[in-house]
Structure formats: C-alpha cells, structure tokens
Design a protein around this nucleic acid. Structure first.
Length: 310
DNA sequence: CTGGGGAAGGGGCCC
DNA sequence: CGGGCCCCTTCCCCA
C-alpha cells in the first residue's frame, strides 16, 4: 500500500512540523513571562520596602488601599507592562468597602483603583511620605491624589475593617459577620449595592466584577489577539477560539462544541418543543425562538402572551 | 443554527 | 476562619 504509507509519512511530517511550531511559540511565551515576572518582583520589592498606606476616596466615599499588601498574581502581564512600573492589577489592591449607603449618601461607585481610573500622577511606588496617601475621584471622573496625614470619609476617619448593614445600620467588625447577618436577618437581601445601577450583590467580589461594566476595566488580556475581558472565565472561553478546543460533546447531534450552553440549546432544538405561545398555541424549542415569535402578536403582547412549560 | 461575548452567581482553594 | 481570587456554569444577546 504505497499510497497509504505515503499518506502516513505525509501526516507524520505535518504533525511534527506543527508540534515544532507550537513548542517554539510556547518557549517564546514562557521566556517573555519569565522576564515579566522578574520585573514584577522588582516592583513588589520596591513597594514592600516603602509600605505606603493609600486611602482612596470617591466624592465622600472612602476606599482603603494598602499597597504593601499587593502581590504579583497578575493575569495580565502585558497590561501592567504598558502601564509602567507603578501600576498594579486592579484586584490586587486591598480595598475596604463600606456597604452601608445610609452613611454615605452620595452612593458613588466604590471600585478598586485600576489603571483606567488613575491619573499618571497617582504614583504609588514612591509616595511622598510613609503616611496616608489620599486619592479622590472627582466629579469629572479623575482621580486626585493628595498626601494628607489621615484620610476621611464624610469628615471622619473610618476604621478599615468597619462594616455596617445597609438595612439596619448595625455595625460589624468583619465582612463575614456582615454577610452572615444578611443571611440570618435580612433573608433574600444583599449586602452590597452598586451605586451606579442600584444592583445588589451578596458578595463583594461579585460587585467588584460587576463594577467593571461601569468603569470599563478589562484586566484580562488574550495573549493571542490582545482582546481584553472583564472576567477570567470569559477569557478562558475566548481562548478556545484560538486553540480550537471544543470540550463539550453534544449527544443530540454528535458534534463537539465550545460552549456548554450550546449543548443545552442543541438538546432543546433536537428534543421536544417546550415553549408555547399562549396566543396562537405554536410551540418552540427555545425561549429565544418564542421571543422572536412574540412580536407577531405585538398588539396584545403585553397582557396576553407569556411563555409556559407544557 | 452556530459561534462568540457579556454578565451573574456559586463553589473551591489559598493566604 | 475570613476574604479574595480563580474557575466553572448558566443565561442572554447578537452577528
């Protein structure tokens, strides 16, 4: 079977060439990352030596940042490189959020400092003194830095660990005590509220991620195409575009897909139609299909149509 | 229908 | 043990 042998040899050569290319790219990437790590370590070392204490203020809201606490756990090396040696990843800052909006009437967005929110003058590497550095976000969206001896919120010094319930104003020493209090006393209510859109969250870290909608911060950058993402998981899914990975197998159609949700949609479309229009009785595989259909009954849609399970 | 991105929420793990 | 971060899942939307 000369043809088969030739084909085998051809496939082997192609695979070897592809593997060689991938390994080369991988080694190059590793070398770049190692170089970045060395630079980041130097920055962290500088920051650790200085131990500056930074207080962030937006309007009358105070965020506290202990830059000495910053560690190099950066998902986006390139971004920080572009920002200069003083910049650190958004979530690395140790931010104290007071979820009680009663005590802070302005309800300004409380988000960690990020590169897009800092002025070039907000230099945390070399603070004026080792005392408190105050950064205020003005009404026009600019961070203003000052180096007063102590920060203040609404005219008073706030303890970094203080937590207060949004609903009953009860104070707590620790964040977890507040969260537990919300679970036990205000069941169904959430401790953290986005001041930009009033959306509520049970977890602070979820609110931080949510706040990126308003700030436009996207700390996670694709190393292939440079596209940025607000969530690491979304970046991970995006990477499948470049790697060609399709980790989900659909039993219904026998195809591999990159998105788990498509698995469900595919199963729905190949299965029973579960969504029925109550006006005309027509059935659809997905709620999306039903939504597309609904404008047909536009005149009476507002009170006569709704999806239902059959 | 498929591919892809945005966003929310939960769980696990590490410091 | 608490808090933060990472990862995964899920849902929605759009091209």
């Amino acid at each position: 079977m000369p043809e088969a042998q030739q084909l085998r040899r051809l496939v082997s050569e192609r695979l070897s060439a592809a593997a060689e290319e991938i390994c080369g790219l991988f080694e190059k990437a590793v070398a770049e990352y190692q170089e970045e790590i060395i630079q980041l370590k130097q920055r962290v070392e500088q920051l650790t030596v200085l131990k500056p204490h930074v207080l962030l203020l937006r309007a009358d809201t105070q965020l506290e940042v202990l830059t000495s606490h910053q560690q190099s756990k950066e998902p986006n090396v390139e971004q920080n490189k572009a920002c200069g040696p003083q910049q650190v990843k958004e979530e690395q800052v140790d931010v104290c959020i007071i979820p009680n909006l009663k005590s802070c009437p302005s309800e300004d967005l409380k988000v960690p400092l990020s590169e897009s929110e800092t002025t070039p003058q907000a230099d945390f590497q070399v603070p004026p003194t080792l005392s408190t550095v105050t950064v205020t976000l003005s009404n026009d969206g600019e961070w203003i830095e000052s180096s007063s001896g102590g920060g203040s919120r609404c005219g008073e010094k706030v303890k970094p660990d203080s937590r207060e319930c949004r609903f009953c104003s009860k104070g707590f020493i620790k964040y977890c005590d507040l969260v537990r209090h919300m679970d036990e006393v205000h069941v169904g209510k959430k401790a953290f509220k986005c001041s930009q859109c009033d959306r509520e969250f049970a977890r602070r870290d979820h609110m931080v991620i949510h706040s990126r909608i308003h700030t436009g911060v996207k700390p996670y950058k694709c190393s292939f195409c440079g596209k940025s993402f607000a969530q690491t998981s979304n970046l991970n899914v995006h990477l499948r575009v470049h790697t060609g990975e399709k980790p989900y197998f659909c039993k219904s159609c026998g195809k591999m897909v990159a998105h788990s949700y498509h698995l469900k949609i595919c199963a729905q479309t190949s299965g029973e139609k579960l969504f029925r229009c109550l006006v005309c009785g027509k059935k659809f595989h997905t709620v999306s299909d039903l939504k597309v259909h609904m404008p047909l009954h536009n005149a009476r849609r507002s009170h006569t149509i709704h999806q239902s399970f059959t």
